[in-house]
Design a protein around this nucleic acid. Structure first.
Lengths: 296, 296
DNA sequence: GTGGCTTACGACACCCGTAACAATA
DNA sequence: TATTGTTACGGGTGTCGTAAGCCAC
């Protein structure tokens, strides 16, 4: 189970072709063929069907492991590389779309920071592999509960902000006048399916904690990352949306009704590699700073 | 960053000796020396001090990564090996001490099961690496909240039981008569430090969610895994203990007072490798079975 | 001087590329 | 027959063990 072999296996499975994978990796087809053969011999199992090329059941299983394995390997190398490198003048901050609260934006220093936004679940990996120095992620959690983040590497997460959640509905909606709404009352409604900008619907199903599987039927799907667009879509009656209150308020034609039950908040956390932060990173951490850190 | 090199690095760091590591791994000292040199050359950093042998700061960092990396590698290999192996007649179940509720014990089939108990945080690794086929872990969580388990490998966790928590105090204790107790009122008390049988004290500090760091001062330390002993120690006045109600009740000289705030339960989950369970495992899962599974 | 890590060197295995082969569409 | 994966073979690289050096106690 040499990482090289895993990497070629992953590439072959992704591209569904030995020759394409060879081109991508800078090997000959022959070498790729030998890699796969070696892996199959090592594990004693066929991993790929040939012609057409695709993973066998065992291969599917290996795919689940190989990705995170290689990711962690990259993360380890990047973490050690940071140790050797001289402290840099500039710094990259990646953020999930909804993690950029006005407060966070105001806290950015004038110069030296590059900001990039990424889908929510790619942020931890970006920080782990050193693609970014710091990351802002958001999510739904019980008040003062840490987010559940994938542990692709040992990093430190620190609370940056918590704010209430709001359900966005058209201003004319029968429930729009309510002072608060309960998730349980909205299980059967149509919801905007906007995993990039709002939250994946199965996240809502999990939060609802009812009998799993059903409810929260998807209406229109939106693949962008702009929360304002989601709110506007909700205002136009394309489906409900759950957003942090600050992102939901002030949309023309929309009503933002606080979510009262279950007791959940929109939380954002700052991710950074373990260890002492360098100059500019330390400054940014302090500016965004908030309560005590929790290492994982 | 060949896994072999990581393995020898880990061994050398653990044993603080090149020659000992060589004996353990079946290499010569020379080979070990070359491994370390190769790793240091690859990363461009010194990882170990010689004479005495110990990790440098960068080496410390690598240790954090290397362990889980190799664990995941083992887990992947074990998972694939299961695919090749014939379904077995016998099955190993590992359980954390407090995860064995009377209900769970009653559900075990008459034959074919080997039961082993392990410290709480070794259970997921045991299931991942195939040392065990199924695992029972317990922990403290908000009602109907899944446990926070380390994701050493892709496995499936399924709720088996939830029950209230109780504070155990001596029968004569001033608070013993109360109908319920709040964790906040007990921050300044002395607590038994019994991470094996009860819960690590920093777990309590986290649950309390107050200003981190202090509170829940440790009294006597108990390193065994017997909950009954912990309860008896609490009865004898050696410090408070938090236990699942069923484990806390019925101890002579002890009062078990339900914990009322924060709203927490003792939850136990069944861990199994992803994929279709085989015959005997499927039976056990069904017997212990409860509500819907959640894959991670 | 002894124990323990490093370096030099040689044998062997492994890995990749070239090239001939096989199988599928 | 064209394309794509497999197999055979040869050269280069890497890895391990033996043995000699080096350094600290």
């Amino acid at each position: 189970m040499d990482p090289h072999l895993l990497r070629t296996y992953l590439t072959v499975a992704r591209l569904a072709s030995f020759s394409e994978a060879a081109r991508t990796l800078g090997y000959t087809q022959s070498a790729v063929s030998q890699h796969i053969a070696a892996l199959e011999a090592d594990l004693g199992l066929p991993l790929l069907t040939r012609r057409p090329v695709g993973p066998t059941p065992a291969g599917e299983r290996l795919l689940e492991h190989a990705g995170s394995l290689l990711l962690r390997l990259d993360a380890a190398r990047a973490d050690l590389a940071r140790f050797a490198a001289a402290p840099r003048e500039t710094l990259t901050l990646v953020a999930a779309p909804l993690a950029l609260s006005p407060h966070a934006l105001a806290a950015l220093p004038a110069t030296g920071v590059t900001l990039r936004t990424l889908p929510r679940d790619e942020v931890p990996a970006a920080v782990a592999t050193g693609d970014a120095d710091l990351g802002l992620v958001d999510g739904i959690a019980a008040p003062s509960d840490p987010l559940r983040l994938p542990d692709v590497a040992p990093y430190t997460a620190r609370r940056v902000a918590e704010e209430p959640l709001a359900v966005v509905l058209p201003a004319g909606h029968p429930l729009a006048g309510r002072p608060g709404l309960r998730l349980a009352d909205l299980v059967d409604a149509r919801w905007l399916d906007a995993p990039g900008a709002a939250f994946p619907l199965d996240r809502l199903r999990a939060a609802h904690a009812g009998p799993a599987g059903h409810g929260f039927r998807p209406a229109l799907r939106y693949e962008g990352t702009d929360a304002r667009t989601v709110a506007a879509l909700a205002a136009a009656g394309h489906g409900l949306a759950l957003l942090p209150f600050s992102a939901a308020a002030g949309i023309p034609g929309a009503a933002a009704v606080p979510l009262t039950a279950p007791r959940l908040v929109h939380r954002t956390e700052l991710l950074r590699p373990n260890g002492e932060p360098t100059g500019l990173a330390a400054e940014l951490i302090a500016r965004l700073g908030a309560p005590p850190p929790a290492t994982r």
